[in-house]
Amino acid sequence: MGRLKRIWGKDSLEFKPERWISDRGQIKHEPSYKFIAFNAGPRSCLGKDISFVQMKMVAAAMLWNFCIQVVEGHSVTPRISILLRMKHGLKVKVSKRCI
C-alpha cells in the first residue's frame, strides 16, 4: 500500500516530504492504515516507536560528534515555498568535532 498510485498519486515511488505538509505549512494527518508496514490500531508495530527514537538518536549523535558549518561564500537564499528550502541548496563542511 505504501507505493500504490491510487493512494499516493502518479509519483508514488518518489520520496516527497511535502506530501505530509498542508498548504498552510502544518503537518497533515494521514491515517496510519495507509502505512501497512507499521499497521494500526491495537496491533500496531512495537518497533515503530523504537525506530523513531533511533532516528532521533542518530541525528543527535551526528550533531554531537561533527561540526557542521556553511561553506564560506555560499549564498544562503530561501526558496519561496511551503517548505523551508534553499534556492541553491545548503552547502556545508562537515568535520570531526574536537572534544
Rank of each mutant, 00 (worst) to 15 (best):
residue 4 L to E: 12
residue 8 W to E: 00
residue 8 W to N: 01
residue 9 G to Y: 06
residue 9 G to Q: 04
residue 9 G to W: 04
residue 10 K to P: 07
residue 11 D to L: 10
residue 12 S to D: 04
residue 14 E to V: 11
residue 16 K to W: 09
residue 17 P to F: 05
residue 19 R to F: 05
residue 20 W to P: 00
residue 20 W to L: 12
residue 21 I to A: 01
residue 21 I to E: 00
residue 22 S to T: 12
residue 23 D to N: 12
residue 23 D to Q: 13
residue 24 R to Y: 07
residue 25 G to D: 02
residue 26 Q to K: 14
residue 27 I to V: 14
residue 27 I to H: 09
residue 27 I to Y: 08
residue 30 E to S: 15
residue 31 P to V: 08
residue 34 K to A: 11
residue 34 K to F: 11
residue 34 K to L: 13
residue 36 I to P: 03
residue 36 I to L: 14
residue 37 A to W: 11
residue 39 N to F: 12
residue 41 G to V: 05
residue 41 G to H: 04
residue 42 P to M: 06
residue 42 P to V: 09
residue 43 R to T: 10
residue 43 R to D: 06
residue 44 S to P: 04
residue 44 S to M: 15
residue 44 S to A: 15
residue 49 D to N: 15
residue 50 I to P: 00
residue 52 F to D: 08
residue 53 V to M: 14
residue 54 Q to E: 13
residue 54 Q to S: 11
residue 55 M to Q: 10
residue 57 M to I: 14
residue 57 M to R: 12
residue 58 V to I: 12
residue 59 A to S: 13
residue 59 A to V: 14
residue 60 A to Q: 08
residue 61 A to L: 12
residue 61 A to H: 09
residue 62 M to T: 11
residue 66 F to M: 06
residue 72 E to N: 09
residue 74 H to Q: 05
residue 74 H to D: 01
residue 76 V to T: 03
residue 77 T to D: 07
residue 77 T to P: 01
residue 79 R to K: 13
residue 79 R to S: 09
residue 80 I to A: 12
residue 81 S to I: 10
residue 81 S to V: 06
residue 83 L to N: 10
residue 84 L to P: 02
residue 84 L to E: 05
residue 84 L to S: 09
residue 84 L to R: 09
residue 85 R to P: 00
residue 85 R to L: 14
residue 87 K to T: 06
residue 87 K to P: 02
residue 88 H to L: 07
residue 88 H to G: 04
residue 89 G to Y: 05
residue 90 L to R: 03
residue 90 L to V: 04
residue 90 L to N: 02
residue 91 K to G: 03
residue 94 V to N: 00
residue 94 V to W: 00
residue 95 S to A: 03
residue 96 K to G: 00
residue 97 R to W: 00
residue 99 I to T: 15
residue 99 I to W: 08
